[in-house]
């Protein structure tokens, strides 16, 4: 579903992504961990076709993103760190509009079902987004992905700033989507959430994928230790 072959992005003399080889299959949730500037967001932006790679290639559903950027958009949904919707429109209106942009015609009943499936409480359906918390906006984002029937989900630090309950709910939603065969790539700083939801976990540093784990085969403690080792973190002794 998601494939990168030696994907590289260089800005002037700064290598943001260095020969990344990645494969995320249908139903998998792949979490990319790494510090700021590790190349996680660059990877997502390259997969979205927002930026052009310096070399290498990225594929969504076997379509080359560089060559068929528009077609690849039909298969993917994207939720950024701060999902911004139209504040003066309601959740229903936002979902209707964004689905319409993707070429989906939804009945009101369908819109309600998607919002319900995404976990948004019913009394919020007809409320303006301006009154929504970040967690509620993320749920609308998931509803947009559900309505689009996306095969690929790209998430850029979606749980950052969410309270534990909202973060947990979000993780459950991702599981639901993976059970439907959606391939998810999630960039995050949240080791705990990554361990909770991921099928596989990769650790990035300086644009390179340094380590990769099967989530169920590693404990949270080991994951943290590996992460810190990769980041070359030295414990401060007082």
């Amino acid at each position: 579903m998601i494939t990168t072959n030696n994907l590289t992005k260089i800005y002037k003399d700064q290598t943001a992504l260095d020969h990344l080889n990645l494969q995320v299959n249908a139903g998998e949730i792949y979490c990319l961990l790494g510090a700021n500037g590790a190349g996680k967001t660059t990877t997502i932006n390259l997969l979205l076709g927002f930026i052009e790679p310096t070399s290498g290639s990225a594929f969504i559903n076997d379509l080359d993103v560089s060559q068929k950027a528009k077609e690849t958009k039909k298969f993917l949904a994207y939720i950024p760190e701060n999902l911004m919707l139209y504040p003066s429109l309601t959740a229903v209106e936002n979902l209707d509009y964004f689905s319409g942009i993707a070429g989906k015609k939804l009945s009101k009943k369908n819109i309600f079902n998607f919002l319900k499936e995404a976990g948004l409480q019913e009394d919020a359906f007809e409320k303006r987004i301006a009154t929504f918390s970040k967690g509620m906006r993320q749920k609308v984002g998931i509803a947009i992905a559900l309505a689009k029937d996306a095969k690929v989900l790209l998430l850029d630090e979606p749980t950052s700033g969410l309270d534990p309950k909202a973060s947990n709910e979000f993780g459950q939603l991702l599981h639901k989507l993976s059970q439907k065969g959606v391939a998810t790539l999630m960039a995050t700083h949240d080791l705990f959430r990554a361990k909770e939801v991921a099928t596989r976990i990769g650790i990035m540093k300086d644009g390179q994928l340094k380590e990769e784990f099967i989530a169920k085969d590693i404990s949270l403690l080991n994951l943290e230790q590996n992460y810190l080792n990769t980041m070359e973190y030295k414990e401060v002794t007082l």
Binding site: L48, K73, Y78, P80, L83, M84, P87, I101, G103, K148
Partner: peptide, 12 residues
Amino acid sequence: MGTLTLLKSQGI
């Protein structure tokens, strides 16, 4: 507002 990114990802 940040909606442009989402619009682009929807294949506008």
